[in-house]
Design a protein around this nucleic acid. Sequence first.
DNA 1: TAAATAACTTACTTTATGTAACAAATGATA
DNA 2: TATCATTTGTTACATAAAGTAAGTTATTTA
Lengths: 127, 127
Amino acid sequence: MMMVNQSQMCPRFEKAIEILSKRWTAFILFQLLSGPKRFVGIESSITNLSGKVLSERLKELEAEGLIQRSVYPETPVRIEYSLTDKGAALAPVFSVIASWATEWLPTTAPIPGPECETLLSETTSGS
Amino acid sequence: MMMVNQSQMCPRFEKAIEILSKRWTAFILFQLLSGPKRFVGIESSITNLSGKVLSERLKELEAEGLIQRSVYPETPVRIEYSLTDKGAALAPVFSVIASWATEWLPTTAPIPGPECETLLSETTSGS
DNA sequence: TAAATAACTTACTTTATGTAACAAATGATA
DNA sequence: TATCATTTGTTACATAAAGTAAGTTATTTA
């Protein structure tokens, strides 16, 4: 029997969705949008993300060319993760998602959290 | 010990990312962007998506108000899934992702697939 | 009554993720 | 030199999510 790629999608678009919809990757990328961060910094900023999976994701994202890993041999060693140009180019994606969330998701905040408007910093201006 | 929500993210934005980054949901929503589809139509258009998970996701998306389930009591019964206004409002998200993919992902097409440029237009010829 | 068809469900297997203890790397310090 | 403190991971094991394939329901036709 002949195996057929039945997807009607552009392979690059499909790949982009695969990257972004893998669990935790979008959160990790978003956290790095605001600047370089260390391992524990990312870990503690994302609820329920385990160090084990963060380690896997960081390797995957580095392999995809979305983030860069920089080692600073201080005492103790400091390792920073930052977005590459390719990764930083995803900013508009998060901006559009934020716009949609603002318009369509209920606010339902039992405890008032941080102001949403400020969270996307320089990317907040509508497209 | 006091439990603290350590996330620095806007709850609505976090929710949006959660929805979109759950496995298969983005693909399902994208498929519905081009118009209402039946269960098997969605299933066959997304490689490796099982009927079991599709069934779960469709219920979740309906519960979120992103899609609508319509029953047509014909012979045999026909059930169509379509985007609500809330769901259709996600179109720009996919558009921006597609732009990013076009600019930053390698084309690496061993077999030339469908033209990427046409895939996000509402006028895409249906399956 | 039985077949045909679409839309799911259920039981079971495989894969992904969470948890918590442990190892590797680094320079300061004894 | 050797040990220590600190950060960054990694490993072993348990739990949760997803894949597979057979079964169920509902309906009309024969």
